[in-house]
Simulated scan of single mutants.
Amino acid sequence: MSAEQKRVRGDASPVVRLTNVSKRYGGSTAVALDQVSLSVSPGEIFGIIGQSGAGKSTLIRLLNALERPSEGQVEVDGVDLAGLSPAELRTLRRRIGMIFQNFGLLSSRTVAGNVAFPLELTDATRTDRNAKVAALLSRVGLAEYADRYPAQLSGGQKQRVGIARALATDPDVLLCDEATSALDPETTRSVLGLLRDLNRELGLTIVLITHEMDVVRTVCDRVAVLDHGRLVETGAVADIFESGAHPATRRMLAALSL
């Protein structure tokens, strides 16, 4: 799919769709997610925000099929994740990139080795892998760091390596799980700028999980607000910031203005 095709919005089929999704753990009556329905359009940067315990971590584990819903349907690229075999799930996950709050890098591998890791699980030749890794490191501004190890990098550099690794399999969707919460404000702005550039240049659909309203304001097109497992508000970022009505939204907006 071309970058232009990925950026088609409006009447295009959603890349991500949750329909009446609930999640309970074990025999507990506590509900981590309660009847959540939302959709993410191709080429969109979609924010999912909520405080601790809102259900964000559960939602992202459903999106990459590490968990299955207790009720409802989770679809990526029109495919119901619950109906896939283990082999089909492995194939689908190549189309879903993931970056993490704690970077998730392998300390024993160089920067290039970390980025190459997903490619080693494909049938790409060593020559093709090396070329792809070099191109990705150049794209994220780390070409000269290929032979360094994670311990030799700053937090922002580690996250850029994580982004390059997530892009290695040319995903349709990039999931960002609190990807900037461990970074200082200046580095956060730099990483968010990189994500915005990748969205525009590649037509990459990004789902960004965060508890920071400033992150949403900086980079997202639309946002959904979670509160105690329920989707309480969703809309264009400008509309939510101007007239967000739910108490959970107002609390986060008030904290932003402090």
Rank of each mutant, 00 (worst) to 15 (best):
residue 2 S to G: 15
residue 8 V to I: 14
residue 11 D to L: 13
residue 13 S to C: 06
residue 18 L to K: 07
residue 19 T to Y: 10
residue 25 Y to L: 15
residue 29 T to H: 06
residue 34 D to Y: 09
residue 39 S to Y: 04
residue 42 P to N: 09
residue 43 G to I: 11
residue 51 Q to N: 05
residue 57 S to E: 10
residue 58 T to H: 05
residue 61 R to A: 07
residue 67 E to Q: 12
residue 71 E to W: 01
residue 75 E to A: 14
residue 77 D to K: 12
residue 78 G to A: 12
residue 78 G to T: 12
residue 79 V to Y: 02
residue 81 L to H: 05
residue 88 E to A: 15
residue 89 L to N: 00
residue 91 T to I: 09
residue 94 R to E: 04
residue 96 I to F: 05
residue 99 I to W: 01
residue 101 Q to N: 06
residue 101 Q to V: 11
residue 102 N to P: 00
residue 109 R to Q: 13
residue 111 V to F: 03
residue 112 A to P: 00
residue 113 G to V: 08
residue 114 N to P: 01
residue 114 N to L: 10
residue 116 A to K: 03
residue 116 A to I: 04
residue 118 P to H: 00
residue 118 P to F: 00
residue 124 A to Q: 13
residue 125 T to K: 02
residue 125 T to V: 04
residue 127 T to A: 15
residue 131 A to Y: 01
residue 134 A to T: 15
residue 135 A to Q: 14
residue 136 L to W: 08
residue 140 V to Y: 04
residue 140 V to K: 04
residue 146 A to I: 09
residue 148 R to S: 12
residue 148 R to N: 05
residue 150 P to N: 03
residue 151 A to N: 12
residue 151 A to C: 02
residue 153 L to Y: 01
residue 155 G to N: 02
residue 158 K to L: 11
residue 159 Q to N: 06
residue 161 V to Y: 05
residue 162 G to R: 01
residue 162 G to V: 08
residue 162 G to I: 08
residue 164 A to F: 05
residue 168 A to Q: 02
residue 171 P to I: 11
residue 172 D to G: 15
residue 181 S to W: 06
residue 184 D to E: 01
residue 186 E to G: 00
residue 191 V to Y: 00
residue 192 L to G: 05
residue 193 G to L: 03
residue 194 L to H: 10
residue 195 L to D: 06
residue 195 L to M: 14
residue 199 N to M: 06
residue 200 R to Q: 15
residue 202 L to T: 10
residue 202 L to C: 11
residue 203 G to Q: 13
residue 204 L to W: 10
residue 204 L to A: 13
residue 205 T to R: 09
residue 206 I to G: 08
residue 212 E to N: 13
residue 212 E to D: 15
residue 218 T to G: 00
residue 218 T to V: 03
residue 218 T to K: 10
residue 219 V to T: 09
residue 220 C to V: 10
residue 223 V to S: 08
residue 229 G to M: 14
residue 231 L to S: 08
residue 232 V to W: 05
residue 235 G to S: 09
residue 237 V to P: 01
residue 238 A to Q: 11
residue 240 I to W: 06
residue 242 E to N: 07
residue 243 S to L: 00
residue 243 S to C: 06
residue 246 H to N: 10
residue 248 A to N: 11
residue 252 M to E: 09
residue 252 M to I: 14
residue 254 A to K: 09
residue 255 A to G: 04
residue 255 A to R: 05
residue 257 S to C: 09
residue 257 S to K: 14
